[in-house]
Amino acid sequence: MKANPILLQKKYARVIACFAKKTGISLGGAMDLFYRSQLYCLMRDGVSDLHCMSDDYLADELSAEYQTKAHHS
């Protein structure tokens, strides 16, 4: 299912803000990481209705994605 583009942009902003708060990085840094993430691609493409998940859950998923990438580098 595709979400309304305006609502999806607002969702991205909330997830980015939550991710920044949880990790202690700047909003700009969080935004950069978010838009380069697999999570963003999945949300943008409407995979598994990820946009329906809570902002907190998605921020945790983004954190997990980058922790996994850090361990594999």
Rank of each mutant, 00 (worst) to 15 (best):
M1W: 13
K2F: 09
A3I: 02
N4D: 15
I6Q: 15
I6D: 15
L7W: 14
L8G: 01
L8V: 05
K11P: 03
Y12N: 07
Y12R: 08
A13R: 14
R14T: 05
V15Y: 01
I16T: 00
I16D: 01
C18V: 01
F19K: 00
A20Q: 09
K21S: 11
K21I: 10
K22F: 01
K22R: 04
K22G: 03
T23C: 00
S26G: 09
S26E: 08
L27F: 14
L27H: 14
L27S: 14
L27Y: 14
G28W: 06
G29I: 07
G29Q: 10
A30C: 09
M31K: 14
D32V: 11
L33R: 03
F34A: 05
F34L: 00
R36D: 10
R36E: 11
Q38A: 01
Q38V: 07
L39Q: 05
Y40M: 02
R44P: 10
R44G: 10
D45W: 12
V47E: 02
D49R: 04
L50I: 05
L50A: 01
H51D: 09
C52I: 12
M53R: 10
M53P: 05
D55W: 06
D55Q: 08
D56P: 06
Y57R: 12
L58E: 04
L58P: 10
L58Q: 10
D60F: 02
E61Y: 06
E61F: 05
E61S: 07
S63V: 13
A64P: 10
E65I: 01
Q67P: 09
Q67M: 11
T68K: 06
T68F: 08
T68A: 06
H71V: 15
H71E: 15
S73L: 13
